[in-house]
């Protein structure tokens, strides 16, 4: 087993453990912080895939910005454990769990038996290095091949901002 494989298993195991804690945990704050750790483990896995740029973004955007918002919202809502308790519904848990497991089995089966496309044509690891690394390639692609989705995403963000302000603004009537 190569060293990267060992690291992959370590990070994945930690990530999975904390992912479980996110959904099973009773305290919302501890769930949120477990989620931070999940993001860190995923970032580590991206590093193992030599996707350093995505790893950095993962930490900056998800573990950084997004989680700060999460924690802020949880603290502002000041939700206690009791108000989150929806009561025990064994049938719902069983059904939901069964559906999730079935879906997971399906995905795992497809991943194991399907063949994935190894790399985008002409973009091998050596090629990326020769151009100047991940960030360079991503930015070049974003402003040439993927210019339309990039611009549309800015409209999407604007709509999100306008929408949340429209819902949250205090009306002076």
């Amino acid at each position: 087993m190569a060293a990267t494989d060992v690291f992959f298993y370590i990070f994945s195991a930690i990530g999975l453990l904390f992912a479980l804690k996110v959904v099973m945990g009773k305290n919302p704050i501890s769930s949120a912080f477990s989620l931070v750790l999940v993001f860190f483990c995923m970032a580590a896995n991206f590093v193992l895939l030599e996707a350093h740029f995505i790893a950095a973004m993962q930490i900056l955007v998800y573990a950084g910005a997004l989680m700060v918002l999460f924690v802020f919202v949880i603290m502002l809502l000041n939700a206690d454990v009791k108000s989150l308790d929806v009561g025990k519904k064994p049938l719902h848990y069983a059904l939901g769990g069964a559906v999730c497991l079935a879906l997971m089995a399906l995905v795992v089966y497809a991943l194991v038996n399907g063949t994935s496309f190894s790399e985008k044509a002409g973009l091998s690891a050596e090629k990326i290095d020769s151009i100047g690394g991940n960030a360079q390639v991503v930015s070049l692609m974003m402003f040439s091949d993927y210019i339309l989705p990039f611009e549309l995403a800015s409209i999407l963000l604007l709509v999100g901002i306008v929408g949340s302000v429209a819902l949250a603004k205090r009306r002076t009537e």
Binding site: L152, L156, V159, G163, L167
Partner: peptide, 21 residues
């Protein structure tokens, strides 16, 4: 392109989520 399809779908949907509420 499916990525354009997805973002367009989100623009449409997010605006409507707000309008519904």
């Amino acid at each position: 392109d499916l990525i354009v399809l997805f973002i367009a779908l989100e623009i449409m949907s997010i605006a409507v989520y707000v309008l519904v509420g």
